Amino acid sequence: MTQNASEFGFSEQEWNVLFSTPVLAGLTVAHAHFSGPTGVREENRVLEKCFEEHPEDHALIVRLKTAVLESGLLDQKPSGKAGELKARTVEQLQQVRALLEHKTNSEAYRAYGDFLGKVMSRVAGAARDGDFFHAEPNKVSDTELVVISELLKVLD
């Protein structure tokens, strides 16, 4: 068992679900609406930037970010269609909710939810959706907003 998992009372499998879910959620938002090649690169860059450590991070988030960076998870490309990716994310978020409710306090639960929301919002705002000739005027599409809302509701 890794120090990260045991430090917070999680099994190795539980810890893997906790640290991989924000990445999966960010990728789900990125794939919710076509952003074109330049947009995809920018969304990936922003997703990676979300895992840089910040002094105000909760201890759980600090460890989670470290685990993501050490795992190479950000280098992996998701498989499947947007709907399949979303379904997988919802399933993982349901597991995360149960884990956080039973094994953490409200402060850690809130920190995780806030971090997840930031990841998805930043990825959604990374680039205009559409290709060069058909870019939408707003950076965040209605589809992305709906996906973010639906995913965050799982943790409510």
Results as ranks from 00 to 15, higher is better:
Ala111Lys: 01
Ser106Asn: 13
Gly9Arg: 03
Leu100Tyr: 05
Lys103Ser: 11
Lys139Gln: 11
Leu151Cys: 02
Val62Cys: 10
Val62Trp: 06
Leu18Arg: 03
Val119Ile: 05
Ala98Met: 09
His58Ile: 01
Phe10Gly: 04
Glu43Pro: 02
Ala111Cys: 01
Asn105Lys: 10
Pro37Tyr: 10
Val46Met: 03
Ser121Cys: 12
Glu91Thr: 15
Lys77Trp: 04
Glu84Met: 07
His31Lys: 13
Glu56Arg: 06
Leu100Lys: 00
Glu56Gly: 07
Glu14Val: 00
Gln95Pro: 07
Ala82Gln: 07
Leu85Cys: 05
Leu74Gly: 04
Thr21Ile: 01
Asp75Ala: 11
Ala59His: 14
Thr2Gly: 12
Tyr109Phe: 15
Lys86Cys: 02
Leu100Gln: 05
Leu24Phe: 07
Lys103Ala: 05
Leu24Trp: 03
Thr104Ser: 09
Val96Ile: 14
Pro22Ala: 00
Tyr112Gly: 06
Ser20Cys: 01
Phe133Cys: 08
Phe8His: 04
Val46Lys: 01
Thr66Asp: 06
Leu151Asn: 03
Leu151Val: 01
Val147Trp: 04
Asp142Met: 12
Glu14Gly: 02
Gly83Trp: 05
Lys103Asn: 06
Asp114Asn: 12
Glu136His: 12
Glu53His: 14
His31Val: 04
Arg128Phe: 14
Thr21Asn: 02
Arg88Val: 15
Gly36Trp: 01
Leu27Lys: 13
Asn4Pro: 15
Lys65Ala: 04
Ala82Thr: 07
Ala32Trp: 05
Val90Thr: 08
Ala124Cys: 11
Gly9Cys: 03
Arg97Asn: 11
Ala135Ile: 07
Asp156Ile: 10
Gln76Met: 06
Glu14His: 01
Lys49Trp: 13
Ala30Ser: 10
Trp15Asn: 04
Ser141His: 04
Val62Lys: 14
Glu43Cys: 12
Glu7Ile: 09
Asp57Leu: 00
Gly9Glu: 00
Met1Tyr: 02
Gly36Glu: 02
Val140Arg: 03
Glu52Asn: 11
Lys153Val: 02
Asp129Trp: 06
Arg110Thr: 15
Arg41Glu: 13
Phe132Cys: 00
Arg88Gln: 12
Glu144Gly: 06
Leu116Gln: 00
Asn44Lys: 13
Arg110Cys: 10
His33Ile: 11
Ser121Gln: 13
Phe132His: 11
Leu145Tyr: 09
Ser79Gln: 15
Phe8Lys: 00
Ile61Met: 01
Glu43Gln: 14
Asn4Ala: 15
Glu43Tyr: 03
Ala135Thr: 11
Glu48Arg: 12
Arg88Asn: 14
Glu107Leu: 13
Phe51Lys: 02
Thr66His: 13
Glu70Leu: 06
Glu12Phe: 04
Val123Arg: 03
Ser20Thr: 09
